[in-house]
Nucleic acid binder design. Structure first.
Lengths: 230, 230
DNA sequence: ACAAAAGTGTTAAATTTACACCCATGA
DNA sequence: TCATGGGTGTAAATTTAACACTTTTGT
């Protein structure tokens, strides 16, 4: 394991930044300005700096692409991708991070990648090759992870603003899973799980109908029993 | 994202190889023969070759350390670790793989790491710093992942030989989770989950008592509903 | 008044849990 | 015969699922 002459690799971070925008499950993509894959869509990302830790690099890219410092939202490591030839220029190992974030007021405040935008994930996943490099596979892994984690963690709240209603939370589940949930049973389930939601006392009436209680995310991260996709 | 002069990283794979040996949840460790951390225990691993894919490198290390080509068992990517300074010699990003394997007849048939052996995980996890580098944290992540996956997948069968009894499968759960499970209800649960187990028709009487049916792993990978840790 | 969304009550079905009990073998 | 683990039955407690119904707003 020691020695001194080991093959050099370039190491990057790539981001799968997911959100729910107007009822659609969407991912942030950038349009590539250079070869290879010039003009094609890709996940945002970049090289890790020499003295930068992996999560720091992911946070820096997140900040550069979205202007968001995630006091809201959630960022976790997804997986690493290092097949020879995945980047035609050189051997690159990419550490992918998965970010879940609320729908941002201004789409992208960042500067670096001018042509970044959210697009619905289903269209991108449907046809292979719509993303540059192996980013289609990375996106598929991120989407699968997000869908699974909504079942057994309280991570759906990462898609919501700091205060939200039960109906808005349910809309997140329905958009991410692509199913319809019974509003009555959903309400009982999430409000009845200790630590999932913290009531603020306030209520709102955005959306019409009877005003709804506002909640913040609670302290629990594991949901026991899990929420079911039916 | 393009350019040409990027900081070079060394990239390695490290393996968290877990098994259940005589009722104990155990991990394969090697004794380091060189500095740094000479004489200390570490996870097996090594540098990725220039034209080698990540899973191939993990399989190669697995073969070198155990002689096992996993038709049995299970190998999946765990996570990557790249904090600056985690290896005092150079900047190293390590892609960790998690392997679950049956108790091997001959402990280690490999050649490379002479001083490799299985040790119980609880002792290693109890005190920080018992493993070299950041391998204690990697082990903790691997153990947590394995424990979680037993709940909602059929991966416990990866710890069993190709044919096994329900009692042997239950012993895996009890060793990994460190709990006792009701033998009657466990039996009903696993035999009643379609696709979890495939009966062979044969039976065995190892272990005393009434002979038990032998099963192979079934085709299902997701358990719905999950098995509970109580 | 009506539509629309929030929230509560209620009941049948399904699942889990605990444990009594029988079965098939070796010592 | 007894000890040991394998395996089935069953009933209470809990959880889910389906949906009727009431509440509170905007139009």
């Amino acid at each position: 394991m020691a020695g001194s002459d080991h093959p050099p690799f370039a190491v990057t971070v790539d981001l799968v930044l997911l959100t729910v925008r107007s009822g659609r499950f969407a991912v942030l993509v950038v349009e590539r300005g250079e070869q290879p894959f010039r003009g094609r869509l890709a996940l945002p990302g970049g090289f890790i700096r020499p003295d930068e830790d992996l999560p720091d690099a992911a946070l820096r890219e997140l900040r550069e692409e979205t202007g968001l410092a995630p006091s809201l939202g959630h960022l976790e490591q997804l997986a690493s991708y290092g097949a020879p030839g995945r980047d035609p220029r050189q051997r690159v190992v990419s550490v992918a991070y998965l970010g879940l974030m609320p729908d941002l007021p201004e789409p992208v405040a960042g500067s670096d990648a001018a042509a970044s935008r959210f697009v619905p994930v289903d269209a991108l996943l449907r046809e292979a090759g719509s993303l540059a490099f192996d980013h289609g596979a990375i996106l598929a892994d991120g989407v699968e992870r997000a869908r699974a984690k909504l079942e057994y963690t309280s991570l759906a709240t990462a898609f919501c603003p700091s205060e939200f209603t039960v109906g808005e939370l349910r809309a997140v589940y329905e958009a991410v899973w692509g199913v319809e949930l019974d509003p009555r049973n959903f309400h009982r389930k999430v409000t009845g799980t200790p630590g999932f939601l913290a009531p603020t006392g306030a209520s709102t009436t955005r959306g019409g109908g009877r005003p709804a209680q506002l909640y913040r995310r609670g302290s629990t991260s594991a949901l026991m029993p899990p929420l079911l996709r039916t």
